[in-house]
Write a protein that binds this DNA or RNA. Structure first.
Length: 872
RNA sequence: GCGAAGGUGGCGGAAUUGGUAGACGCACCAGGUUUAGGUCCUGGCGCUAACCGCGUGUGGGUUCGAGUCCCACCCUUCGCACCA
């Protein structure tokens, strides 16, 4: 055994051992309980970052732990390989995206392997391979024929100079990121997936996902956004034709207070008004230009113009003016609202600006005296407070036959009356919209549709799949290069055989990642999307990834899983199994971000970012940071706080450099030890050093232990050491099940501390060391593997069973009690096991005699095995 | 604005059901080995001059006993945001 711990050779040797034995290959085994442990697959951006290391280490620790617990564990890896960065890199370097992507995959795969993850590489997949994406296409054609996929026009960001579609993140301050040209909204035909068909189920099933963080479930709930209300029709006449303007409201009880209508600028009425009236046209035009991002909308002042139309109140027959309002969203409800200024904050602001009537129809119990209500009172000449500032909904007033009704009763009555006239019904509205999957991009999965002048949009038949993406193209920033490739575009109609044009749009890359987890079960399956092996492995038992995917990726995957089940891809699924199988990820762990400090030098207002590794800090006697400077030249640097690692702030830590300096095991140990998995991790080079120091101490202890035997430790000391080690082990086993991996790492440290306190190497030391190496093996697998063999404990620590504490070791002859007087801790006392509470209390009183000082003992509280509280 | 999570030493963080607050580590201090430095080893380390004092964001409460439970408030972070 080497004197010094040399991670490089230890890790190479262990990795060769695993490779030679194909240690991580897994097959289906009906006789064993399966555990599918999955980390979100990476986008092959070039090289691994610390977030990857953290993510994959968490997954690997759990994988190795459950393996040692006897489960049949699958942990695969693959590549989310389509996407925009490859096109950008291609433009910058004039390299085809395919080559750039595959080079990156090769490099990052070596990095992952150097970290020693227990991955079954025989299941590796990349979404840019035709063998993978053909099944995107295959499923799409199925869904298209069923109507779950369909075509309609959708709004995109259009760069008029490059003649190309921009992603939201490519629009900066309303301008194209490359050209600086003002971005336009443009309507183009797109393909959609009818995720709304599953809205009800996707929402309801969230309540049956105990393994998901509440936060994520809530975000999904809000995203799906179910609300109950009433759809109300307002009749009007236009060009001698009777029409109805429909609105949706959750507050039908305020219908009697509607004094105007507001429609979205994209609403047919607005478009009609724009054709007829110059002012309306100008307003609609301006709205189209102003913004693409919906979030900005909230900041803009409410504005509108009259549409020149009046509608009829469905209950009173009163004439109500219609306005075009910039605050009305076309994409929600009917794209039109009834304006009830007295009881809606937005309607009120709008009415205030344009002098529209305010009519109170709800009475709220407690009048408000608050300052901000005064203006309102002056305006409306009433003595009450707008309902939206109240928690209660109030009762109807000024509402004729509805006066006195509460919210629920009023909504029911009004809905019934509207229903009788055919001008309203109760309705459930969803915020969730259908998923537009068309991307006017080259580096993605081609949408398998052929446009035929005679037959229309024809899905490509199975026999002609996959529609292979040509890989030699280099985009130049002026639109999708597929459009300029006649051999791709020009084809024959699969239906009639006449000349036709192939669709050149590709799919949103979220499609690729919505089912990859199922494909890992059977990546070699050439004849089907998935096979019976997916039935064995699905659902994923533990999914691990970033919170940034809390909504889209996870929601789309939940949708896809259901669509795939409904397509019969999992065969006949009994109802009970359907519930568990529909949710692709039974347990979800969202790991926190990796943060680092950033520093800059300030030379005349110009910041130069200095890498934290090049900064030395000065501390006072208590360890507080008082100053910082750059090591190379002593220049003073300014601390800029913690943030995500980024190139712009020059505060990144390169995993590769870390591995080269300390080894993979230190990188793994540190990322586990520094912080609980779900918290942010604040990077500290000194703390990395501390983790390395611990691994060196483990090595040194094993080195000493190896040749030695015998001990001067007495029986009590040996027993105490054994008690401590097994106590720590009990805690470790509890912690790992609850995914608190930082305390698992510190538990390993505690075991080593206990071993080092023990003189010599009695049998208890050997036992403790076996426990230590097994506890360490998921976190630092190379080190544990090497030492396990060096000490002759066995051939392969991974094959050893995970340790459980020995109840005999945890049994004590004497129990230490904490003694409190009046609730304050005043000492401890050792009590032989098996004494009565009364006897224990007597011993406790004698131990803290001087705090009692002859006063009367009024009560004695004994918590068995823990403490005694003497109340005077 | 709405929603969620969280405030514990100089720092990261521990503390199953209320039961010795600060485990484990970093930083810092002292000593030792080596000595050019680092490595390595030993000890100390919430505040306080000290205590039988004070301490888990602030103020109340429940309890023999509160970081943990209840009420009110303050602050931070994250998510959503004109969704009718």
């Amino acid at each position: 055994m080497q004197e010094r711990y040399e991670p490089r050779s230890v890790e190479r040797e262990a990795q060769e051992f695993w490779a030679a034995r194909r240690s991580f290959r897994v097959t289906e085994d009906a006789g064993r309980s399966k555990f599918y442990c999955l980390s979100m697959f990476p986008y092959p951006s070039g090289k691994l970052h610390m977030g990857h290391v953290r993510n994959y280490t968490i997954g690997d620790v759990l994988t190795r732990y459950y393996r040692m617990r006897g489960r049949n564990v699958l942990q695969p890896m693959g590549w989310d390989a389509f996407g925009l960065p490859a096109e950008n890199a291609a433009m910058a370097n004039r390299v085809p995206p395919a080559k750039w992507t595959r080079d990156n995959i090769a490099y990052m795969k070596r990095q992952l392997q150097s970290l020693g993850f227990a991955l079954d590489w025989e299941r590796e997949l990349a979404t840019c391979d035709p063998s993978y994406y053909r099944w995107n296409q295959w499923l799409f054609t199925r869904l298209f024929r069923k109507g779950v996929a369909y075509k309609k026009t959708g709004v995109v960001n259009w760069d008029p100079v490059d003649q190309t579609v921009l992603a939201n993140e490519q629009v900066i301050d309303g301008r194209g990121w490359r050209t600086g040209a003002p971005v336009e909204k443009r309507e183009i035909p797109m393909y959609f997936l009818r995720i709304t068909q599953y809205a009800e189920e996707l929402l309801a099933a969230l309540d049956e996902l105990p393994g998901w963080p509440e936060q994520v479930k809530l975000m999904q709930k809000n995203w799906i956004g179910r609300s109950e209300g009433v759809r109300i029709g307002f009749e009007y006449a236009l060009e001698n034709e009777k029409r109805v303007l429909w609105v949706f409201t959750t507050r039908a009880d305020t219908l009697m207070g509607a004094t105007f209508m507001a429609v979205a600028p994209e609403h047919p009425i607005a478009e009609f008004a724009a054709r007829r009236d110059a002012k309306a046209r100008a307003f609609v035009e301006e709205c189209r230009r102003t913004t693409v991002m919906e979030a900005d909308l909230a900041q803009i002042e409410k504005q509108g113009v009259p549409a020149g139309i009046e509608v009829e109140h469905p209950l009173t027959g009163a004439k109500i003016p219609v306005w075009i309002g910039n605050y009305v969203l076309m994409g929600y409800g009917e794209g039109a609202v009834m304006g009830v200024p007295a009881h809606d904050e937005r309607d009120f602001a709008f009415a205030l600006k344009y002098g529209l009537e305010v009519k109170q129809v709800i009475q709220v119990p407690v009048p408000s005296e608050r300052e901000e209500d005064l203006e309102y009172r002056r305006f409306s000449n009433t003595q009450w407070k707008p309902w939206y500032e109240e928690k209660e909904k109030g009762i109807c007033v000024n509402s004729g036959k509805y006066d006195g009704l509460t919210y629920r009763a009023a909504v029911d009555a009004i809905a019934a009356d509207l229903g009788a006239k055919g001008l309203g019904e109760k309705q459930v509205q969803w915020r969730l919209r259908d998923w537009g999957i068309s991307r006017q991009r080259y580096w993605g999965c081609p949408i398998p549709i052929v446009h035929c002048p005679a037959c229309g949009d024809v899905p490509v038949p199975d026999a002609q799949l996959p529609v292979v993406l040509p890989e030699h193209l280099v985009p130049d920033g002026t639109g999708n290069p597929l459009n300029k490739l006649p051999e791709f575009v020009d084809t024959a109609c699969p239906s009639c055989g006449k000349p036709a044009k192939r669709e050149t749009d590709t799919m949103d890359t979220f499609v690729d990642s919505s089912w990859y987890f199922a494909r890992y079960a059977c990546p070699d399956q050439g004849g089907a999307m998935i096979d019976e092996r997916a039935r064995y492995w699905m659902p994923v038992d533990q999914y691990i990834g970033g919170i940034e995917h809390a909504i889209l990726h996870l929601l789309y995957s939940r949708f896809f899983q259901r669509a795939m089940i409904d397509e019969g891809l999992y065969g006949e699924v009994p109802a009970a199994r359907r519930r568990t199988l529909s949710e692709p990820f039974a347990d979800l762990l969202t790991q926190g971000m990796v943060l680092a400090e950033s520093y800059y030098t300030d030379a005349g207002g110009r910041r130069e970012w200095v890498n934290p590794a090049e900064v030395s800090v000065e501390r006072d006697a208590k360890g507080k940071i008082v100053a910082a400077k750059r090591v190379s030249d002593g220049a003073a640097v300014v601390y800029d706080g913690l943030g995500t690692m980024s190139k712009s702030k020059n505060n990144g830590v390169d995993p590769q450099a870390l591995i080269e300096k300390y080894g993979a095991d230190t990188a793994r140990f540190y990322t586990m030890f520094a912080s609980p998995p779900t918290n942010t991790l604040e990077w500290s080079d000194e703390s990395v050093e501390g983790s390395f120091r611990f691994l060196k101490r483990v090595w040194a202890y094993c080195l000493k232990c190896r040749g030695a035997s015998g001990s001067s430790a007495d029986e009590a000391a040996r027993k105490a050491a054994r008690f401590e080690i097994h106590s720590v082990l009990k805690q470790v086993n509890y912690d790992i099940e609850k995914r608190q991996l930082n305390t698992v790492a510190s538990g390993a440290m505690k075991i080593l501390n206990a071993l080092e306190r023990l003189d010599g190497f009695p049998a208890e030391a050997g036992e403790g060391l076996r426990i230590l190496l097994r506890v360490l093996s998921p976190i630092t697998p190379h080190l544990a593997h090497h030492l396990w063999r060096e000490l002759g404990f066995g051939e392969d620590v991974m094959q050893a069973a995970w340790p459980d504490p020995d109840p005999a070791a945890l049994a004590q002859d004497e129990i230490k009690y904490v003694v409190q007087v009046n609730g304050k801790t005043r000492g401890t006392v050792s009590v032989p096991a098996g004494l009565s509470d009364e006897q224990t209390a007597k011993l406790a009183i004698s131990a803290v005699d001087k705090y009692i000082g002859g006063k009367e003992v009024r009560r004695k509280i004994v918590v068995p095995g823990k403490l005694v509280n003497i109340v005077l």
